[in-house]
Amino acid sequence: MSEERVRYDAFHPGKLWLDTEGKRIQAHGGSVIQIDGVYYWYGENKEKTDGQNGIWHWGVRCYKSTDLYNWEDLGLIIPPEPEDPQSPLYPNNCMDRPHIIYNKKTKKYVCWLKIMNSANIQSETILTADSILGPYEKVKVGFKPLGMNAGDFDLAVAEDGKAYYYFERIHSELICADLTEDYTDVTGYYSTHFPRIAPPYVREAPAHFMRNGKHYLFTSGTTAYLPNPSEVAVADTWHGPYTVLGNPHVDDKSETSFHSQISSVFKVEGKKDLYIACADRWLPEMMDKQYSRYKRIFECIFLQNGKGMEEFEGDEPIVENTSISEYVWLPIRFDGEMAYIDWKDSWRLEDYPDEE
């Protein structure tokens, strides 16, 4: 059932965002790529993920736009495989944070997917296609880069065509690994960053971007769907060393990154210095008193080894319904090297200067 059709002329962070057909946009944990003057936004399709039916995803969905406000649904570019429980694309598997980069040498679009199966084994699935819209063919399944358990990640391509893979080595540190020339493997060369003792302190959800020759990384803590304070770090090279500058959400008294988690950052072409941080508000229903309960449950389970859970006996279970997740897209403000993200109820591209 479609919602009422609307046309947007501004961003409204945290509010319901519909496509041009009036349907809720489903491109979570995703990224935006520009091709021949058109923006493509792709991500996890959560339309069937109600938190109770066991479905984690329904493939990767893609949208296109020329103004960044209004998005046309192009359908599933990587469909789920519900008839094959052994497939990494089986809907009950946790498929997170698809990232697609273009290889000018092979003329292939290369997509990496983070997969966690029912046995809680995490690995990567890598696919390639001749078009951003597919069809995509699996070239690696069950891949463990550098022999490591890999979590949330980002892919980035340098001007010279060399590509890099930033990922969370599960519950320990962040890794930057060089990719092979075809972008479907790692070379073996890597660097380590932000070593932490355990969740929630370990950094995940890396989002890389470059500005004025500097490399930036936004990361979040490891607290599942519970939002937490972001960190921003800067370096002079792809492999760092990275210097942590602090929490970019300086005015966020809730210390939840405005109840969201950054998935990616992109620069708006034609604008002088406009970068947009794209974030997901995974559980919008948890922003009231339910949030405090959810946070307390997390603390009992992960920080107190289960102690204190008796206080929740008899409570209704928390339902992680991500089919209604919203988006928080905000511009990045720079002061020297520091990157800030300020809350805005609404904002427009037209309020930012064009490139000269």
Rank of each mutant, 00 (worst) to 15 (best):
W56T: 05
G30S: 11
W282Y: 08
C278F: 03
G54T: 08
A235C: 11
Y327E: 02
F143R: 06
K144L: 07
M210R: 11
P206H: 00
D152L: 08
N305W: 01
G221W: 09
D335Q: 10
S65E: 01
S2K: 03
W56G: 10
D178S: 14
D9C: 05
Y8I: 00
T219C: 14
G22Q: 13
S263G: 14
E310A: 03
A27Q: 10
S191Q: 10
D351M: 06
R211K: 11
N92Q: 15
R196F: 09
E47P: 00
P331M: 05
I100V: 15
E313R: 06
E173P: 06
V157E: 15
F143L: 12
D251W: 04
G270E: 01
N120L: 10
V139H: 03
S172A: 12
A10H: 02
E269T: 08
A224F: 14
S172W: 06
M286F: 15
L330C: 04
I262A: 00
W347S: 04
P353T: 09
K108F: 11
I132F: 06
G22W: 10
I297S: 05
A150V: 15
E316D: 11
I132E: 00
I25Y: 01
F194T: 02
V319F: 05
V32Q: 05
L68H: 02
D9P: 00
D178V: 11
V38Y: 07
S254A: 13
F167Y: 14
Y90D: 11
I132S: 03
I35H: 10
G270M: 02
D160R: 12
Q52G: 09
R281D: 05
N120I: 02
V268Q: 02
Q34E: 15
A150P: 07
G161A: 13
C111Q: 13
Y275F: 12
N247H: 09
L174Q: 14
H171S: 11
G314L: 04
D354P: 01
M95N: 14
P317M: 02
L113A: 13
Y294S: 07
R196K: 12
Y69C: 04
N70V: 05
I132M: 06
Q34N: 10
G336E: 02
P200M: 04
S118D: 14
W58Q: 07
V265S: 03
K104C: 08
E350D: 15
I25W: 03
P13K: 12
D288Q: 12
L76G: 05
Y352W: 14
Y63G: 01
V234D: 03
S230W: 13
T106W: 10
S220R: 08
Q261E: 05
